[in-house]
């Protein structure tokens, strides 16, 4: 064996280790806590907490290419990130504001989640009597399932220390753009002049919308599990003033539900929150289809 002639694999090993180092450096710069195939960081939108005023923090997930985490309703498999907050007295965490998810998976197994990166904004409230305190620590333990081909559960502790002042805070220059971008990815409230209807048949829910224009593209993401079949067909019928979208019921839905909640995505990436009472079963009507 000759030692002076390295095997042909050597240059590749050099290139790969350089690439690996570059990746490490990128992650080191992000200063996030490690999670499987990525990092997690807790960031604040403003420079300090103004006593008596609400404020926002966010969980920023950065994942290696192709890996994903899940929406609040993960779909057929998977699990959403679960957060346990450790907060000082006087600060309360609200619910995660979930951005519009993507459909992931195959024809027969459909999941809802986020590939590569996602920022989950969490609104916080601060009591007025916080003013007397010094800086406070906002901490969270996050359990997260990260998947691509296979799934790896992870757990991370993240924290953030913020001063408390009586006056309102300017934006944090480092994170303000990230918050603005994350807000654009949230579903919005539907315009007040749009009219929706929801009826059911034995095996389907039928969501109708009158939006004042023909709708040729619509996908519904059910917020709660086991109501709508994730892999089932969503049949869109455009009408002159909107659409009718038939959603197959989940096989796991054995009792009637009072309301159906979810996110309706229309063309142009516009997404709207839907929360509709389920109407009385109706015979298929052609009234709206003209």
């Amino acid at each position: 064996m000759s030692w002076h002639k390295p095997p042909a694999i050597f240059p590749w090993a050099l290139v790969l280790s350089a690439a690996a180092l570059a990746l490490c450096a990128r992650h080191a710069e992000a200063a996030g806590a490690p999670i499987p195939h990525g990092t997690l960081e807790l960031v604040a939108e403003k420079q300090w907490i103004a006593a008596g005023h609400p404020f926002n923090v966010a969980l920023q997930f950065e994942l290696e290419k192709g890996w994903h985490v899940y929406w609040v309703n993960p779909g057929d498999s998977g699990e959403p990130p679960r957060v346990t907050w450790d907060l000082p007295a006087g600060i309360t965490a609200g619910d995660i504001e979930w951005p519009v998810p993507r459909r992931l998976g195959t024809a027969s197994i459909v999941d809802y989640g986020y590939e590569d990166a996602v920022m989950l904004i969490v609104p916080m409230s601060a009591e007025a009597n916080l003013a007397a305190q010094g800086p406070v620590q906002i901490a969270a333990e996050v359990k997260v399932l990260v998947c691509r081909e296979m799934c790896i559960p992870g757990k991370a502790q993240v924290s953030l220390t913020l001063p408390v002042k009586p006056q309102t805070s300017p934006l944090n220059a480092k994170s303000a753009d990230l918050f603005a971008a994350a807000r654009k990815a949230l579903p919005r409230a539907a315009p007040a002049n749009w009219k929706f209807g929801l009826s059911e048949t034995t095996d389907s829910f039928v969501l109708t919308g009158k939006l004042g224009r023909r709708i040729r593209y619509a996908i519904f993401f059910p917020l709660d599990e086991s109501q709508v079949s994730n892999a089932g067909p969503q049949t869109l019928v455009p009408t002159a003033s909107g659409f009718s979208l038939t959603l197959r019921k989940s096989d796991q839905l054995l009792k009637p539900i009072a309301r159906l909640k979810g996110v309706l995505v229309l063309s142009g990436e516009r997404a709207y929150s839907i929360d509709m009472p389920v109407g009385k079963p109706v015979a298929a009507s052609t009234k709206g289809a003209g």
Partner: peptide
């Protein structure tokens, strides 16, 4: 309780990509 959401990992069929 005759039916629930079967939580877990997706079954790795030949067409699975996740």
């Amino acid at each position: 309780t005759p039916a629930t959401r079967p939580y877990g990992c997706s079954v790795k069929y030949s067409d699975s990509s996740h």
